[in-house]
């Protein structure tokens, strides 16, 4: 287990370095950073001086090493647009995005898995068919459209829920949370639903097809032949065997939710990283863009690491292969 984690960590570092390289080259590709930082009437000497001070005359590998070093220390540079350290900007926005993402993912899992199980166990019931039809709509409607429709219905027509923002937030020092106030919860409902809807349908359909697959296997037939209760067969035997693919997809999707919360955040004016990123693109705010890239990659890497560990918890066959591999 520990050997596995170490190996995965090394792989993760390689991935992160690659992403950092891409993020680093962003600075070069979008033109001369000095030209973007100074005004039109800055003299050539001043420009050269700035270039020297920023270390832009150093060899590229040295610059990359410095970039990586700074990034590791949490020094992401200064935003061109806002003029504040990117690290602080991201730290402000991070809780909003993470909260939204986790609430959405939790919603997708807690609703999607039971729906998937239900539709797999009772494929003939009308409720299953209704679920499947709804899921088809959920999977084919674009996220922003769902968001706008929700705003129209609950925000404008019914006036039940706020249409933008996070509501009242509580500052815990290291983290600002909207989950401790009523207005915070009211505010997160619609964005989280919007963001989680697609994942929900995906998870439901995945659980359903995996479960149907497992229910056809010999060991389920044998479990039935032993007279186990339907409950034991479905939940003790079948569900556990559907979990591995569900964990994979959920892990990947969670990364996706965080990274692509952009659209939902824009629709609901959610003060998260996605909104920050979108504004950064409009203003070619390279430090923000590259830091966002690195941060999202970090999330993906961490989630994948957790997924890998979960595999080993769920499936004993993987644990053994590891032992055999270590023995050789």
């Amino acid at each position: 287990m520990i050997a596995l984690i170490i190996r995965r960590l090394i792989q993760s570092i390689v991935v992160m370095l690659t992403v950092a390289l891409i993020a680093f080259t962003l600075f070069r590709f979008v033109g001369d950073p000095v030209a973007q930082m100074v005004g039109q009437d800055t003299s050539l000497e001043d420009r050269a001086q700035l270039r020297e001070r920023l270390g832009l005359n150093d060899p590229v590998p040295l610059q990359f090493a410095r970039y990586v070093g700074n990034t590791v220390k949490g020094n992401f540079g200064i935003s061109y647009r806002i003029g504040r350290p990117v690290g602080a900007l991201l730290a402000e926005r991070l809780p909003a995005t993470l909260e939204l993402s986790f609430v959405a993912a939790l919603f997708a899992l807690l609703v999607g898995i039971p729906m998937g199980i239900y539709t797999a166990l009772h494929p003939e019931r009308w409720l299953s068919k209704a679920f499947l039809t709804i899921s088809l709509i959920g999977i084919s409607l674009p996220t922003f459209l769902i968001g706008i429709l929700l705003i129209l219905l609950f925000g404008v027509v019914l006036g039940w829920l706020p249409t933008f923002g996070r509501g009242a937030v509580v500052d815990l020092g290291f983290w600002t949370t909207g989950l401790l106030s009523v207005s915070g919860w009211k505010s997160i409902l619609m964005p989280a639903f919007t963001l989680g809807m697609f994942q929900l349908t995906l998870i439901m359909r995945l659980v359903r097809s995996e479960m149907l697959e497992v229910l056809r296997t010999d060991f389920i037939k044998f479990a039935r032949a032993r007279g186990l209760t339907p409950r034991a067969v479905h939940f003790g035997h079948a569900l556990k065997n559907t979990l591995v693919p569900v964990i994979t997809i959920t892990g990947l999707q969670l990364g996706g939710i965080i990274a692509f919360a952009i659209i939902t955040e824009t629709v609901f004016q959610w003060p998260g990283m996605g909104l920050l990123f979108l504004q950064a693109i409009q203003f070619a705010d390279i430090p923000v863009m590259s830091s966002y890239l690195v941060l999202i990659a970090l999330f993906f890497v961490i989630i994948n690491l957790i997924v890998d560990i979960l595999y080993h918890v769920v499936d004993p066959r993987l644990r053994i292969e590891r032992q055999v591999g270590a023995g050789q």
Partner: peptide, 16 residues
Amino acid sequence: IGAIFQDPLTSLNPLL
């Protein structure tokens, strides 16, 4: 009534 099936490799739940 007990039952024994053909393929012992697939008759047991691999995760339990």
